[in-house]
Structures are given as C-alpha cells and as structure tokens.
Design a protein around this nucleic acid. Structure first.
Length: 707
DNA sequence: AGCACGCCGACT
DNA sequence: GTCGGCGTGCTC
C-alpha cells in the first residue's frame, strides 16, 4: 500500500541560494512522479516550472508551510537519470543549486506556466501537457543520402577507433586534426556508426554561426533522421520544439551550442565536441560552467564515447592525451588532394612603418601586406584581413595636452566608432548618438555612448587623433588604396541584424567579396575555397596580455585564421604583422607546429604551478566602492578553513577595475588537485554567502579561463 | 530573479 | 493625511 501525500523535492531556478538547494512540496495523490519529471509548483504568489529531484516521506519544512504541487507535466520524466546525475555533478562542482543548472537550459515557452493547460484525470492528480505543437515526425522513407567521400588512412583510423567503441561504455579521444584535415568527415562517419547501433548523438559546436552549416551537412548525410538544432539564436517556438523533439526521443541527433550539453536526449551513444579548445564553451555569466568538461562527464555517466576535436587542443586536453587518459587520434594532413598547409610570413612592423602622413606608406596595413593584397586581387582570388578590434579606433586622444576620451563609468577608454550620419529628429532635442561627422564614442564594457567631441574638451585642440585602428577604419582606408576591390566587413557591429552574418558569408562564398575585413568571428570554421591570402594585424596586444592563457589563445587564434587560407588546391599565404617577431610563438607558428608550442607552454605551466598542473578558482565581487569589495574578500579570506594543498592569494583589483561604476575585485584560489579545491569550497562558500548578505554581487568561478 | 513588505518626501 | 521612492529579504 503506497503512502499518500508524499514529499517531493523540486529544483526551481532560484539564484543566490545554498548549494544543492531544493524545495519541498506535497504530492497528495497516489504515485508520485519519478525524478526528472517536470512539475508546476506554487511559488509565493506565482507559479513556476521545476523538475522533481527526489521524494521522501518527511520534510524539514514545517507542515503548515508545505504547499501542494499544482500539476505534473506529462506522465513520464523529461530528464533521464544520467542527465540528473550530470546536473548533480555540475551543482557540486560549480557550486550552484541544481535549479540554476537545469532550468536555464529549458526553452522559455516551456518555462512559462501560463502556456500550460492543466487537466484533472479521475485519479493520479492534475496533469499538464508541454506547450507547443509537436513537430511532424520524419517519414521513414529510405531516401538516397548525399555521397560519402572516401576517407584517407588517418580518417579511417579515427573512425575505426570509434567503431570499436560504440556501445562499449565510456571512452574519450582527442581528434587532433590540422585545419582542413576533414575532422567533420570523421564526425559524420562516427555519427553513422552510432545511429546504426541504435543510439543518439550529441554534437556541440562553439557558436551559433557554425551550427547551421554543420546541421545542414548532417541533414544531407542522414535525410531520414530527425536533427534538432539547439542554440539561443533560434526563435522561442523553435527552441521549444527542438527540446521536445529530443525529450520525446524523436530527434536522434542534436546539434547545438554550450547549453545543449543538457539536451534531454534519451540515449546518447556518442558525444562530439567540435573545436574543443574554444573559449565559448566556458559560460561567462550566471553559473560558470565549462560545457566541454561537462560533455566528457555526461559521456561518462551515460556510458558512451566522447570525441573532442581541434587543430589546436586546449592544453588541458592535450595533456590528457599525452598522459593516456584520452586516446590521441591524429589527422596530420589536409583532406583535399593537393591542398597543402599555407605558407606563413611574419612581417616586422618595426621595419615597415605604417607611418601616418607619409604618402608612400600611409595606410591600414604594412607595405608587404598591401602588395600581397594587390597581387591576390589581380589574380582574381579572395583575401581575409583579420584585426583584433571592432569600431574605427580603440581610443581617441589629444596630442596637444594628452587628454584621452575615457568612459566615466568604467576604467576604460572609449572606443571610437563611425556610425551612420546622425539624422536630426523633429521634436527631439540633441539626443543624437553621433556627432556631425558620424563619429560616436562607445564604451565596450558598459555600452555607454555619446557623440565624439569635435575638439579637445580640455584644451580646445580641434585635431583629435584616433589611436590605433579597428575594422571600420581598416575597411575604409583599404577602400581608398584598393579602389577596385570589393571590400566587406564582418564583426559584431556588421552582423547585429539577424541573418546579416549569413549573408556576408554567402557573398564571400559566391565570390562577390574580394577582401573580407573582420574580427575573431571570421576565424572560425568557415571554408572559402577561393580564399588564398590571410593578413593578420593588431594582435600584439593579445601576446602581452597579463592572463596566463594569453599565448595559448593567441596561438590557437592565429593557427585558426591561418587555416582559412588555401583550403582547396590553390596554395595559401598568411602574413602576420607584429612588433615582436622574435617571440618564440612566431617560430612555432611559422612551422605550424602546435606540438612544439604546446610542449613549451606546458613546461611553463608546470614550472609556475598553473593548470593543468594545478586547479584554480576565482572569487569575484562587484561593489559600490573599492573598500567594500576588498573588505569582503579580505573577510572571506580570513573565514577560509585551512585545507592542505590549497593557497588563497590576496585580493587584487580585476583586470578592468571599474565597470558601470562598480568596483571589481578578485581573489585567486590555487589547489594541487580538484578534490583539495572542492574540500575548501564546500565548507567555505556557505560562510562567504552568509557574510555577503543580499547587497553584494559576488560569484565563484571554478576552472576560470581568465584570471 | 520577482515581488512583497517597510519606513521617509511631495501632492490631491 | 496618502502615494510611492527603492533598500532588504523571502520564496518549500
């Protein structure tokens, strides 16, 4: 005889609470829903969607405060047990409530309680149905799949490794393949093996722009299989449908970005993380999850293989491959017959000044790079010019008195942008966003903006000078020196409108663009067969950045940008401008020798006791004053229990010490091992939370990518 | 995060 | 006399 009125533990998305916090509700009907079932619960004066976490006969909460569940959603658990186990792990490891982990991955329409219809069947309690139309199931017609190109020997070895492990439990491999080596083809074969074995596939990519291209290729190869795309770029309705398709076992393949690591696939048989080194896998707001690491853990919990792919693996994954924890699958050659790795050249900017005012040399790029652009244009081929900064220039200054346009809310220079010309609006007085010449000052940290002054506000000098150059300026000045070239720009500003990024890529693909100027976003994954020249400018600031991962990141970025050149049979050329040509990174880059760079950087990390040879966490805080922020961290430091192998450094101001008028400080925690770190954080963070109260904004970042 | 409750300035 | 400013604290 089942006991009526059981207590259900429910996870709800409530931030700022104790780790592992769940909420108790009464289930006054027979047959309490199993863990993983979505439920609607009363929440103060409203209702919320949560997931059942567990059940019990007793509760710590006084009975008069326990409230009844309003309804269960569907008669089966949407989240399978291994996914709950993943959330449990993430909750403990990243120190957040399970609700904060799980609920944000649920599409908005499925969290809106108003959109549920609640019915009361004869017995069993009220029941709601997931909102939204289920999508039409794919008719199971054998249609002819797109052709499967023959694999080269390296690709075949990688596929064979995987084929031997499908259905055999957990296994991890690093697919280390140079750009253009056909990693995607290996993924597609691995997907086929897995589908044939009756299991589902989760395919993670770092960003939205890459999702559609990959999803298209997957759909071409598997026309009979339902593929769900999960990114925040989709409309709400489409996101809900994709989630439900996975939860219902209808979608056999999920392609998605970071948050798709929690896709409710029923039976994952393979997890692939493409471009595993990419920083986008690390969540930078809310709970600081690392989706790549969670993907490995999910594979472990689901008992399936995981494949991490990259041309420039993270030092963590490379170290795991070297130590034998991961299998190392190499693709050392470009896949297209005759395609070779591009030729690289480093241009010493100290020898080739881009001096202003000199008629012979003025311009956005150094003379050797300009010559190469001209030659490329003359040959009817495409080039890509990579720059590190968007906007017109990263700063605006007065050479007469030293004044610099600084944001008054942040410790940062205003960036200069060239907007569309300001159109005066009738009735709206001087609310213009830019000055008469169309220049706007924008703070890249708090987004504050104002018209750029026509003269120096300090001394009246009318000749304010842009310092440095961004993509807008490069685009404009390049147009002046290459009047016949069709030049386009791709950065966050030019791709803000939905679909404009895809349109630029399509133009590039169609050959309607000769020179594409862009920021990081042009570096990733795109394959332009007619692109033979890549120019890289303005990356020195990345090389001297104070972060210990700066070099690793820059090397990956430069290799990735370089990899855009000469992917088809036309040979590619890459020119990198720098003032630091003697830096060892450039020798490794010229040789395109990732392994040499990794070995050097790992030796440095080991000597300095940095990841992957140590584990880090950072406690960060934003407060109204430096004293308040620093005081909080000092107090937290004193409250910390002593744990062997753990060292807590003194508080320091953050890299950008003031953002939006908030003082930012941080404190580094270093531990020899993960378990040492966790045995500090477990007892410590509740004390930190207690002393912070409600008015301080703080968070813990486990495995930070920037310190 | 919402959304309440709770104590101090300018209005019908 | 109240309407409402958003500081602080709770939601099973």
């Amino acid at each position: 005889m089942k006991s009526q009125s059981r207590v259900l533990q429910v996870v709800v998305d409530v931030p700022g609470l104790q780790v592992g916090q769940v909420f108790d509700f009464r289930w006054p009907w027979p047959d309490p829903p199993p863990a993983g079932t979505a439920v609607i619960v009363p929440w103060a004066s409203q209702r919320r969607v949560g997931f059942v976490w567990g059940a019990s006969d007793v509760s710590e909460v006084p009975p008069e405060r326990l409230r009844d569940v309003i309804a269960r959603v569907d008669s089966w658990p949407a989240l399978p047990e291994p996914l709950l186990a993943l959330a449990r792990f993430a909750s403990t490891y990243y120190h957040a409530s399970p609700g904060e982990i799980l609920l944000p991955s649920l599409p908005e329409p499925l969290r809106r309680v108003a959109s549920f219809e609640i019915e009361s069947p004869e017995s069993g309690g009220p029941q709601a149905r997931w909102a939204g139309r289920p999508r039409r199931a794919k008719p199971m017609v054998r249609s002819e799949a797109a052709s499967w190109p023959a694999l080269n020997a390296d690709q075949q070895r990688a596929v064979d490794w995987l084929a031997a492990r499908v259905g055999q439990g957990f296994a991890a491999a690093l697919l280390f393949g140079v750009t253009g080596s056909g990693k995607t083809e290996v993924y597609l074969h691995a997907v086929r093996q897995t589908l044939d074995a009756g299991r589902d596939v989760l395919l993670l990519v770092p960003e939205i722009a890459l999702t559609e291209g990959l999803a298209r290729r997957v759909r071409e190869r598997f026309p009979d299989t339902d593929v769900a795309v999960m990114t925040s770029g989709l409309a709400d309705g489409a996101r809900a449908q994709a989630w439900l398709a996975a939860a219902h076992g209808q979608a056999r393949i999920v392609v998605g970005t970071r948050s798709a690591v929690f896709a409710p696939l029923r039976a994952p048989g393979l997890i692939i993380v493409d471009e595993e080194h990419d920083a986008s896998y690390k969540q930078q707001d809310g709970v600081r999850l690392q989706a790549r690491d969670l993907a490995v853990m999910r594979a472990h919990l689901a008992g399936c293989p995981v494949l991490l792919g990259s041309a420039t693996p993270s030092l963590e994954s490379w170290n795991n491959a070297q130590s034998g924890r991961y299998a190392l699958l190499r693709l050392p050659n470009r896949a297209v017959a005759g395609a070779r790795l591009p030729k690289l050249r480093v241009i010493d900017l100290r020898a080739h000044r881009r001096a202003r005012g000199s008629a012979a040399e003025a311009g956005p790029v150094s003379p050797p790079l300009l010559d190469a652009l001209r030659a490329c244009l003359a040959a009817g081929q495409q080039s890509l010019l990579f720059a590190n900064r968007r906007g017109w220039a990263p700063a605006l200054a007065c050479d007469a008195c030293g004044w610099v346009a600084d944001c008054d809310q942040c410790s940062a220079h205003f960036a200069l942008h060239r907007a569309r010309l300001f159109r005066p609006q009738a009735g709206k007085a001087s609310a213009g966003r830019s000055n008469a010449l169309g220049y706007t000052l924008i703070c890249h940290h708090c987004s504050a903006h104002r018209p750029a002054p026509a003269a120096c506000p300090a001394c009246g000098n009318p000749d304010l000078l842009p310092k440095g150059q961004g993509t807008q300026k490069i685009e404009a000045e390049l147009a002046a020196v290459l009047p016949d070239a069709r030049i386009a720009r791709m950065d966050r500003d030019s791709t803000r409108r939905r679909g404009s990024g895809a349109a630029l890529l399509a133009d590039m693909d169609a050959g309607a663009i000769d020179v594409l100027v862009g920021t990081q976003m042009v570096a990733k994954g795109h394959d332009f067969p007619r692109l033979t020249l890549v120019g890289v400018t303005g990356t020195d600031s990345l090389l001297v950045a104070p972060d210990f991962r700066a070099e690793e990141r820059l090397f990956a970025l430069l290799m990735q940008v370089a990899g855009r050149a000469g992917r088809a049979t036309d040979p590619g050329e890459v020119l990198v401008e720098t003032r630091l040509p003697q830096h060892p990174l450039f020798a490794e880059l010229l040789a395109q020798d990732y392994e040499a760079a990794a070995a050097r950087l790992l030796a440095e990390r080991e000597a300095l006791n940095l990841p992957p040879y140590a584990t880090l966490a950072v406690l960060r805080v934003a407060a109204t004053s430096d004293a308040q922020a620093q005081g909080f961290l000092d107090q937290a430091r004193e409250a910390a229990p002593a744990v062997t192998g753990v060292r807590i450094y003194h508080p320091v101001p953050a890299g950008v010490p003031r953002v939006a008028n908030q003082a930012r400080w941080q404190m580094l925690v270093e531990a020899g091992t993960r378990s040492q770190l966790q045995s500090l954080l477990g007892p410590w963070l509740p004390l930190v939370a207690a002393q912070a109260g409600a008015r301080l904004r703080w968070h813990i970042d486990v495995d930070p990518i920037e310190v």
